[in-house]
Each structure stands twice: as C-alpha cells, then as structure tokens.
C-alpha cells in the first residue's frame, strides 16, 4: 500500500536578516556601506525523513523552536523544502492531496464577512465547490453549534476566540480531507466542544484517514496518537514507528527536557 505521507531527507534553512538591514532602506543602506545585508542562516529542519501510512495518527512533539511548525508548513505545502521531497503517494494526486490544515485558529477567516459567508469562503479555499458546501452547511452549523443562530449572520470579528475555533474546526472537518494537519488548536474550545472534536478525530481514525498533529499536551497525545515523532533542533530525535509503543519516545523526550532544565540550573 502506498504511503500517505512520504517525507524524504528534507532540509530547510531560514535566512534571518539582521533587523538593521531589513526592508528597502536596509538594503540600500547596506549597499552604500559597501556590504551585503547580513543574514544569519538558521537551520529549520535538517535531514528529516519519515513515512506515514494511511490511517496513522502521528503526534509531533518537541520543544519550542524544534521545527514542528515548520514541518507542518511543509506538509501543508505552504513552504517548500530546500532539499528533499514531500509527497503523498496514497492520494489521487501525489503532489496535491486533499488536506485540511488546522494550523491556526480560524486561519483564513475574513473578519468582515459573516460566519456563513466565511464557511463558503473557507470551503472554497480548501477546494470545495459552492454546491458541495451548500450540502454540508447544515452539518457544519450543527457541529459548530452556536448558542444563538444570529451569530452565523454576524461578522466573525464579533466572535469570541472559542467561537472562532468552533467554526474553523467545523468547516475543516467537513471538507472530506485525506490528511488532517492540526497545530494545537484543540485546546481553545470548551470541554464539551473538545469532546466533540475527539469524537470526530476518532471517526476519522475509523475511516482510515491520516492525521498529523502537534501537541505539548501528552494526555492528548496518549489519547489519540498511534505514533509519536520527536523533533529536536530540526532533526528527528525519536520515532515510535508505525504500530510501535509510543511511551519510550515520550519518556525519552521528558528525560531530555529534564536534562535541559538541570543544565540551565547548574
């Protein structure tokens, strides 16, 4: 069976410009000083390889700045790796899978449009037609489950952050994705909504869809993940592999964190 996600030897380096030379002014200034604008190469990911089979739920763990979000961005095809390939062999189009990226709370909502308008707008960004969205709008509303119907016709800038997530999540899970990418968004809804999200994730798992999520919440990781990949300084430091036990990797990660904390204290 072809893999759902195939990440092979990817490298990603960011070139961070020193603030003084940022922008046009900086470039011109640097030019007149006879120097090139100084950039600092910052390694985002180095030689990361992992293959995800369809139906796996992979949790990416690691400290801040370890490259988790960069990796998700590469999976979402928002960024391109400098070296290496990211492919989706199990998808009909191996370069363009049907993705539902939940990389930020309600990413891509337009503040001035109403909830309903944003449902259609977001759906079209995720590749669905108007007719397809029309069929799903009832389900989406039922999932978001706002207390008052009137909010669907209010601009989303008037929403609370909880409502934002509810709507964003509701749209994303109704787009029939092959692969779902989640970046710590679950934590914002109330408990009832979180339960609903977990139920939906379980449904996705039963349907054999592939999920990759980033989390610092090990309870959430233990609850849903079938596999854990630990990133440290842009490289894979631990991988429980498909079907393997996730606990040793989590334990190793915790050990590493403690060691780091101890190092700082001494």
């Amino acid at each position: 069976m072809p893999a759902a996600i195939e990440v092979l030897h990817i490298n990603k380096t960011f070139h961070v410009r020193k603030a003084a030379y940022a922008g046009l002014k900086g470039t011109i200034g640097a030019f007149f000083k006879g120097i090139r604008a100084q950039t600092v190469a910052k390694v985002g990911l180095s030689d990361v390889t992992f293959v995800v089979q369809p139906g796996e739920t992979v949790a990416l763990i690691g400290g801040n700045g370890s490259g988790k979000s960069t990796l998700l961005s590469l999976l979402a095809r928002v960024m391109k790796p400098d070296v290496g390939t990211v492919r989706f062999p199990a998808s009909a189009d191996a370069d363009r899978p049907r993705l539902a990226p939940l990389l930020e709370v309600g990413a891509g909502f337009h503040p001035d449009l109403t909830g309903t308008q944003n449902i259609f707008f977001n759906g079209s960004i995720l590749g669905l037609t108007r007719a397809q969205m029309q069929e799903r709008i009832g389900d989406i509303r039922a999932f978001a489950d706002f207390e008052d119907e009137i909010y669907y016709d209010a601009p989303v800038r008037t929403y609370s952050s909880g409502m934002y997530v509810r709507l964003g999540f509701a749209v994303a899970v109704h787009t029939d994705p092959e692969i779902i990418l989640v970046d710590e968004t679950l934590a914002v809804g109330d408990e009832a909504f979180q339960e609903k999200c977990y139920a939906r994730i379980a449904q996705f798992q039963r349907d054999g869809r592939t999920i990759v999520f980033v989390s610092h919440d090990m309870a959430a990781v233990r609850r849903v993940a079938s596999r854990v990949v630990w990133l440290s300084h842009g490289a894979v430091a631990g991988d429980s592999e498909a079907g393997g036990d996730i606990e040793p990797v989590i334990a190793a990660y915790h050990e590493y964190l403690h060691a780091q904390a101890d190092k700082k204290q001494t």
């Binding site: 961005s73 979402a76 095809r77 928002v78 993705l99 990226p101 990389l103 930020e104 990413a107 891509g108 960004i125 995720l126 590749g127």
Partner: peptide
C-alpha cells in the same frame, strides 16, 4: 493583507 492565509493554506 492575507498573511494568515498565505502561511496556513496552500492554493
């Protein structure tokens, strides 16, 4: 104006 979209969703 659409930074949040550009960094989150590809199209």
């Amino acid at each position: 104006a659409h930074v949040s979209l550009i960094t989150k969703v590809y199209f």
